[in-house]
Amino acid sequence: MTPPRPLAAADRDAVRRFLAARWGSATILLDGRAIDAAALPGFVARDGDGVAALITLLDEREHCEIVTLDAASPRNGVGTALIELAAQRARTLGLRRLLTRTTNDNLDALRFYQRREFRLHRLVPGAIDLEREADPAIPLIGRHGIALRDEISLIRDLD
């Protein structure tokens, strides 16, 4: 696996395939907006011709949002490296916070982010139920047999 580096135009097709395989699509729903995650800035670690790990980012007024964070082989430190690169990039752009979202069933993500200085920020009850209306392919039951209903935002101050 190569060390993570900024995404380049030459990575876009591989990123689109990786997101489709891991997320079902490169289109991610955020607050009712359809975001093409494959077109966003971010960082990638490659494994031959494929993507080994990826973070995609959306810059907002005062924060940078992590749209996707995924590693083909978890627990090897690359996810943490991607978070730190995203934090450095956000600081360079003058952004004060890093924001991410997950679902109520994603206990692994909640643990991962909190161990990397993110704090619980906001709970949106029923957010996934609303997204399911736009995308019926979103399952009713998520990880660990937990009903998939709510969105949880976590935030990390960069000051």
Rank of each mutant, 00 (worst) to 15 (best):
R5P: 08
P6Y: 08
A10M: 07
D11I: 11
R12Q: 12
R12D: 04
R12A: 13
A14Q: 03
L19H: 02
W23C: 09
S25E: 08
A26G: 05
I28T: 03
L30D: 10
G32K: 08
R33L: 13
D36M: 00
L40Q: 13
P41Y: 02
P41T: 04
P41L: 00
G42Q: 00
V44D: 03
D49P: 14
G50T: 11
L57G: 04
V67C: 03
A72V: 03
P74T: 14
N76Q: 15
N76C: 14
G77V: 13
G79C: 10
I83Q: 04
L85P: 04
L85Q: 14
R89V: 03
A90K: 06
R91K: 15
R91L: 09
L98G: 04
T102M: 03
N106Y: 00
N106P: 01
L107D: 10
F112Q: 01
E117W: 03
R119Q: 06
H121S: 07
L123S: 05
L130V: 13
E131G: 06
E131W: 13
E133G: 05
D135L: 11
I138A: 12
I138M: 11
I138S: 09
P139G: 09
P139E: 07
P139I: 08
G142P: 07
A147W: 04
L148P: 07
R149M: 02
I155D: 03
D159G: 14
